Simulated assay, not measured.
Amino acid sequence: MVLILISLGFKLSIIPFHSYTPDLYEGTMPPITAFIATVTKISVFVAFMRLLMILPNITSFLNNVLTIISIVTILFGNILALKQNNLKRILGYSSIANLGYLLTVIIAMQMHICKFILETINIYLLTYTLTTLGIFGIISLINNETLSFYKGLFWSKPDLAIVLTIMLLSLAGIPLTAGFIGKVYIFLNALNYQLWFILISIGIGNSIGIYYYFRIISFLYMNVNKKQLIFDLNSFVYYLVLSLSLFILVFGLFPQNIISLIRVFS
């Protein structure tokens, strides 16, 4: 059982099994990276969740281990993203931190499985997936992942800069975006099950995340002499990221209807 959990830990990139993830994100093409960051991680997380659900009774020791891993993953996933100057590597460490947030739900699930926990998982996975796909879609359009390349993007392509801003605000969990709804659900789960140390780590980790997400946003609006860039704005990816940004805003502004739909499938 320990070997199985360690194997799933590698696939989920939770600390201390995370070291390959930023290199993998940086070394692959954006569409492939988007697939790894969404479909692969979600499928493994669901397998991990189902495995823990069918175990007869998870021991308190293993539950404590998962709590420690969750706290460390949240904190160090965000801290390691601070010094990165490559957008894909930042997203790699961000994905590690987001899996730490989801482990909170797994720990709560060991105490009591209820419809609210399943609803939290569905909402958080939906918001994370759509936001991640949107960001990698923009990286694919721009075809550059170096953070300095994005300086002054607003002055050459304001539509892409605004869409990327919406996606980053959602990842940071800022109100009026879909990501805020997902973070609130995670916070409420930790609060309901009195996971106090995890609550503190969520607060600290999200504060660090807000810093490096806003650092990227500040690059977009710097007033620099940037030459006109040419993008293929008639491509499917361009309209996809526009649609995703619109959905993220609608979900953040009017969450109740979408949440009601998610409850049907939870």
Rank of each mutant, 00 (worst) to 15 (best):
T38N: 13
N57E: 14
K41W: 05
M49S: 13
F48C: 02
I68A: 15
I42E: 00
T67V: 12
T73Y: 11
R50F: 10
V65P: 08
M49D: 07
K41C: 15
P56A: 03
F61R: 00
L62A: 10
K41E: 09
K41R: 06
P56E: 14
L75K: 02
L75D: 01
T38F: 12
M49I: 15
R50W: 09
I68C: 13
M49F: 14
F61M: 14
I74G: 02
L52P: 00
F48S: 01
L62G: 04
M53P: 13
T59D: 03
V39N: 03
I42R: 06
N63P: 14
V65E: 14
F61A: 15
A47F: 14
A47Y: 11
T40S: 12
L62H: 13
T73I: 08
I71D: 11
T67M: 10
I71E: 02
L55I: 06
I74N: 10
F45K: 12
M49Y: 11
F48Q: 00
I68K: 09
V39E: 06
F76W: 03
S43E: 02
T73R: 05
K41G: 11
L51Q: 05
S60W: 05
R50S: 08
F45C: 05
V44G: 02
I68Y: 15
L62F: 08
V39F: 07
T73H: 08
R50D: 04
F48H: 02
R50Q: 05
T38R: 10
M53K: 10
S60Q: 09
N57L: 11
L66P: 12
L52A: 03
S70W: 10
K41Q: 06
M53Y: 11
L75W: 02
T59A: 03
V44K: 01
V44D: 05
I74W: 13
P56L: 11
T38D: 12
S43L: 12
T59V: 04
P56H: 06
G77Y: 08
L66V: 15
I74T: 04
F45S: 07
S70N: 01
V72A: 12
L51C: 06
R50N: 06
T59I: 05
T73L: 06
I74D: 01
S60Y: 09
R50G: 02
L55H: 09
T40N: 14
T38S: 15
T67H: 08
T38H: 08
T73C: 09
V46W: 03
F48K: 00
S70V: 07
L52T: 05
K41D: 07
T73W: 10
F61W: 15
V39D: 06
L62V: 13
S43A: 09
I74V: 09
L52D: 00
N63Y: 07
V44C: 03
P56R: 04
L75S: 01
I58D: 06
I54F: 14
I68E: 15
V65K: 13
S60C: 07
V39H: 00
L66W: 07
S43R: 07
S60P: 08
V39K: 00
S60V: 13
